[in-house]
Structure formats: structure tokens, C-alpha cells
Design a protein around this nucleic acid. Structure first.
Lengths: 226, 226
DNA sequence: TCGTAAATTTAAGTAAGCTTAATTATTGAT
DNA sequence: ATCAATAATTAAGCTTACTTAAATTTACGA
């Protein structure tokens, strides 16, 4: 089924998007209390929403169990994420805003964007596969392009050179940190050492040594330099 | 007071915007039944909204009387209209959409646009005073630039040349009509005759004779050619 | 000025999306 | 296996933004 413009509310969009994002994480956690915390709503509200969206066949909900997305929910999540990333790309290109600024604006605009407008923006941009963060932009039919050579910085091998490929965050502090340390998409880094407990990564960038904890190394994707 | 980002809901934005637009019309009609019809809601809902917005000091409401905007309501209306017209200008310039298409999209986007983003779009466009329809774009402080030489086509004198300056509509049929008849901003026309009862205007454009009724001549603004 | 039609308001009810408080189920440590 | 801690659910209630139906007010023609 071709991903339709499902015309949901802001609350539903954000709920489904959060389930989707959580389900894709290394330690996928889609328990209702976790969703409630991420969405800044009460557990009761999350339960309510889960039950309601189950009747609409967007999620699979069994009492006391973690949520999973149903087919339709998955399509909706990809549709919203597509609009988000197209907006980020469009605002970045035209208005020259920062990575954090485009995120904040896209977070709102994604909810009131027609499929028509999303497609026009996509055309204007030349059908890009990735947004300015390096995150893949779903196609209208919900396909995601993946770059299999990308790995998490937390999983990079010590003693090798990498190029930064993706800064998958929406956190202002993270982007401020990146800016002051010259961490940007395309930057070359040398992985000096991987620490365990606590999990940290020591890198060299622009002749500076930085030790990053895993909050950061789990959102930075890198590609090995051939 | 500098026009603030008042952060209202879509319903409130649209209600206030409708009151504003009605109050600027030649035969200003801000009765609740008229607003209800334009907003496609029941009279009861319009009364509810009027009472609620009066407590928020956005409108002046006296039972059984037409509504008027209070200072804060006027600022909100101009803020929303500003965002609407900036979006229209931005989408028109970048994506090359039609006058009707930009209207439809701006109608949604205007509600979730921060003042920051509106200002960035304005800068990108080079602080334009008018949008692609020829409608004035309010400044951040709520000032509207007016072109005093513009008059309604319904009030133009027969026997003179004019230039079309403004097509102030959101109606697809109107724009379709304009397209097939070469009516566009900048077009030169000759006013042949003004009819009364029913009020109509006969014009010559591109050697074609067209008779327009006042539904159209009250949204087309023209400037006399010197 | 009277009576009625139109406009408006009030009353009652609904759905979405929340809240807090109380209750119940699950899980993990002993 | 039990029990306390944690998680999840239910219950009751709130606000916004609507609805329809009934009651009221206004305005206007005779």
C-alpha cells in the first residue's frame, strides 16, 4: 500500500513517531512508561493513546506489554519523518540555519504539511537520500536508503581513520559541543582508543584529543576511510 | 507593544483572522452568524469562542452585537497574516507553485511557524512589502504598507488604462479564471464600461472583451497608468 | 406597537487529550 | 516462593472545540 497522507493530529503523529524511533534503537524500549517520559505526558495518557490507536490499527497493544507498530502505524511514522527531514533539508539549503534550528522548526512544520508540498520540496532538492544530519529521508512509498558502511562511533575500531557521516540528534547541547570541537559531517577523525565501563571513545580531530562518552558515540555515525 | 508570538490554537488563529478580514471589507460584517458561516462552525460555537476570547482580551464582545477586535486580537491577526504571506512568498519563489497552491499550503503552515522562522524567511526574501498576490505583508511590529494609488476594479473609471496590482483571493476558481483570461499582476487593461445593477465591469485585456461581475471586481485591485 | 422571523444565546452532550489518585499486575531480589 | 518496587491500568475530572436543540433577544414590516 502506498504511504497515504493519514491526516492525524499532532499528538498522534508524535506518539507514533516516538514508538518508531524507540523501536529502532539498539536497546529498543517501547514500554508505555518510557514513551510517556519521552513525550512528556502521564502514563495514564500513554495508556489511553495506546488503546485508542490500537482500535485504529496503528499499533499492536496488549495490556502490560511493550507497544509495537502495526503496518499502518509504520507508514504514518515514515510519512511524518519524511516530512521532517525534507523540511530540515529545505530550510538548511535556503535559509542557512543551524542543524539545531532546522530541527526545532521541522518538528512543528511536519504536522501540517501535505504530501503535495512534501513532494514539491523533494523535487526542488533533487530527491536527496539524506538530510543535513546525514539521516536518511524516507521516500513517498516509505523506503529508507541505508549506507551499510556506516557504523556507530562507539563501535569503531581503535587505530583507524574515519569520516563523520551522521549526527543523529535533536539536542542543542550536542550540536554546540560539535561546533566547538569541529565535529561536522565530513570531518576526518582518528579513533585512538575504545574504553569499556564506562563506555567511552577517545578520538583525535584537528590535532585535538577528545574523549566522548557513549551518549555521544551512540548518535555519531562514521565511515571507515579506505 | 511589539507584536508577540501569542501561541494560540489553530481555531483561535482562524477565528481572529476571519474577524480581522471581515472588519476590513467595504461592507464590514462581523456578526457571529457570518463568522460561523465563514469558519464552517455552528453559531453556538462562534458564540462560545467570542465569549472565551473576550476573557482573554482578544475581542470586544457584547451580547447580540457584532464583534470587534481588541488591541491584542489585532496584533494576533497581523502576526498570523504576516506568516501566511511570508510563506506564500517563500513557496512561490523557491518551489514555483501557483497562486492558489501557495495559499492552500500557507493556510496550514501559518499556525505552526515561530517568529524566528518568519523573520528568517523575511530576510531571505529581502524584506518584501507585498506577497505574490499583491497583498501587503505586515512587518514584525504589525505595520502594513499600503499603495494609495491602488483602487478596486469595481471603482475604476471607464475610458482609462490600468495595471493589475493585486489579486486578493483564495479561491481556486477565481485563479483558474484569471489564468485562462491572462489576468495577472502587471497585466495592462482598458476599462470599457461600468455597469450598475447588477454591478459589473467591462474590460479589454489582450484585445479580448470580458465582463466581470462584482465578486471579481471587488478582489482585483488596479493602478492607473500615467 | 405588535408580532413574527431571524439572529443569538443557553443548555446539554461529545470527542480528544490531557491530569491526579487509586488500584492492579508484573518483575526482580531475596 | 514471596514480597516489595516498579509499571501499567482504571477511575474521575478538566479544557478545548465542537455539535444539536431549545429558549431568548432583536429588528422590522404591517
Amino acid at each position: 500500500m502506498i504511504c497515504p497522507y493519514l491526516n492525524m493530529t499532532v499528538s498522534v503523529d508524535n506518539f507514533i513517531k516516538t514508538v518508531y524511533k524507540q523501536s529502532k534503537l539498539p536497546n529498543a524500549d517501547t514500554r508505555l512508561s518510557t514513551l510517556a517520559r519521552l513525550l512528556n505526558i502521564s502514563n495514564a495518557a500513554a495508556t489511553d493513546m495506546a488503546r485508542k490507536l490500537a482500535t485504529k490499527q496503528l499499533v499492536n497493544y496488549t495490556k502490560y506489554k511493550p507497544l509495537t507498530l502495526a503496518e499502518k502505524g509504520n507508514e504514518l511514522a515514515l510519512n511524518v519523518i519524511r516530512k521532517h527531514r525534507l523540511w530540515e533539508s529545505f530550510l538548511y539549503k535556503t535559509l542557512n540555519l543551524s542543524l539545531h534550528e532546522i530541527h526545532v522548526e521541522a518538528e512543528e512544520l511536519e504536522h501540517l504539511t501535505s504530501d503535495f508540498l512534501a513532494n514539491e520540496i523533494e523535487k526542488y532538492l533533487g530527491n536527496p537520500s539524506f538530510d543535513p544530519h546525514g539521516d536518511p529521508i524516507p521516500t513517498f512509498t516509505g523506503k529508507l536508503q541505508t549506507d551499510s558502511s556506516q557504523i556507530l562511533l562507539s563501535e569503531a575500531k581503535a587505530g583507524f581513520n574515519y569520516t563523520i557521516a551522521r549526527l543523529s540528534s535533536s539536542d542543542k547541547d550536542f550540536f554546540d559541543f560539535c561546533k566547538t570541537n569541529n565535529i561536522a559531517i565530513g570531518s576526518s577523525i582518528w579513533v585512538e582508543k575504545q574504553y569499556h565501563s564506562p563506555k567511552m571513545t577517545e578520538i583525535n580531530i584537528n590535532k585535538n584529543k577528545i574523549i566522548l562518552n557513549d551518549d555521544f558515540t551512540n548518535i555519531i555515525f562514521v565511515k571507515p576511510v579506505n
